[in-house]
Design a protein around this nucleic acid. Sequence first.
DNA 1: CGAGGTGTTGAATAGAATCAACTCATGTGG
DNA 2: CCACATGAGTTGATTCTATTCAACACCTCG
Lengths: 246, 246
Amino acid sequence: MQDQSEVSPCLALDAATPEVLGDDVIERLRAIAVQHGAVAAGTRIFRAGEPFRAIYGVRIGAIKAIRYDGTGEEQVVAFHLPGEFFGLTGIHSDHYVNTTVALERTAVCGLPYQRLFHVANEHPRLRRQLMRLMSGVILTEQDQYAAMAGHTADARLAFLLLDLRERMSRGGAPQDRLRLPMTRAELGSSAGLAPETTSRVFQQFRRRELIEASGRNIRFLDLAGLRRLAVPLTHPGHGTGRTTAA
Amino acid sequence: MQDQSEVSPCLALDAATPEVLGDDVIERLRAIAVQHGAVAAGTRIFRAGEPFRAIYGVRIGAIKAIRYDGTGEEQVVAFHLPGEFFGLTGIHSDHYVNTTVALERTAVCGLPYQRLFHVANEHPRLRRQLMRLMSGVILTEQDQYAAMAGHTADARLAFLLLDLRERMSRGGAPQDRLRLPMTRAELGSSAGLAPETTSRVFQQFRRRELIEASGRNIRFLDLAGLRRLAVPLTHPGHGTGRTTAA
DNA sequence: CGAGGTGTTGAATAGAATCAACTCATGTGG
DNA sequence: CCACATGAGTTGATTCTATTCAACACCTCG
């Protein structure tokens, strides 16, 4: 019954192994997790403004988080892939702030926040993991922001593609290929670009033989080249901070 | 001995009142909080890559969180104002990911994370508040992202000014005036704009009589006009304090 | 006083958005 | 089964926005 490619984030918070979290915690999480069946593309998981009840994890498929600006135009705020959580902003606001929509056939699981909190009350390890999870989300959010602000369309999309590749492959997907769950328009929106620009950049990448792309199927031909284009995320662990500027 | 304008975020996490947090928790926080003396503009609080030890709160002054991209160019990721926390991304990475610098004469307080966690182990209310804090940071980060992506320079700067105004006034500062702690270049960088563009937009705002601006002193003349320009953040039930993270 | 950072302004350029047309694949109903 | 509608993706021409390069005014600080 289980799809091989299924990821159960709600039972292993933030990719924590059972050793980290403990079997007892996993058991408790299993007890409170609500496993939703797969829904069709276009299905809304929750809407902005609805009362916050649970945080969600993606098991199969993909989710987009969107907002509508003044003109009713849709703006993509984030994509959520298998193993990732969403809806965490609701904790602060008591209401969901984004609307979330399945991009393809998608299954999610829900962790009712009150119950999750109760479980955490008894398990310090879960508490620590929750903090790590939230901190990680802040980090990704900032990476995204830094990668978009003040950079060209090429750089943004190169970053996005590499980012999606890495996140997809975390679930065991092949490293050299990528099936995009979103349209060019959605991809562009999340990068602050018009759909046409997105399409043109894809063409440019093809011409420069960085990727092969037929529709939503991407094949990476020159990862180094893409990385050179993308905004480098200089996360610690390497390279000393360059102190001498001019 | 206390400066009137001082805010002590480390003693009242995320603008929580003593009633929310409880006097005992406040007392415990006071015991672990490290109150740093004021430092001059340009002082680094921590550098990207340093081992994570504590989260910080701004008491007086202002902080910028920056990253360096490939070319050594500085990119502003966030500003932190009195009452706000920064350094939270370190929780996930065990290292700070941004470098943080005082923009003016600034005093911060540190909450050593391990100790904070220990205190939280004994106080569910503090745990809840911590989760709210982190969630709020994710929310702000997303707001920022949504406000920047795919919008004009006018819209971005209008948003930024209104945002700064609100966050400043939370500490009791006047609502109609604003003393910017950062340069045009820094403001622009955080919005993904060149310094010249920032300057020009300021001129435009002056001409349209939306603001008065002499140097870093801003006076708001037409808030409604600015809001019309800025990207509207349509948050449903919005309530409490805002927080930002490095 | 001069130095250097900050802010402003102008002219030229490059980059992305917009408007528009067209292809293609898919799906629908007649 | 085919005519047609639909949405996604591409491509071209044009317009507009923001960057870049450059020069200069201003202020503070040594």
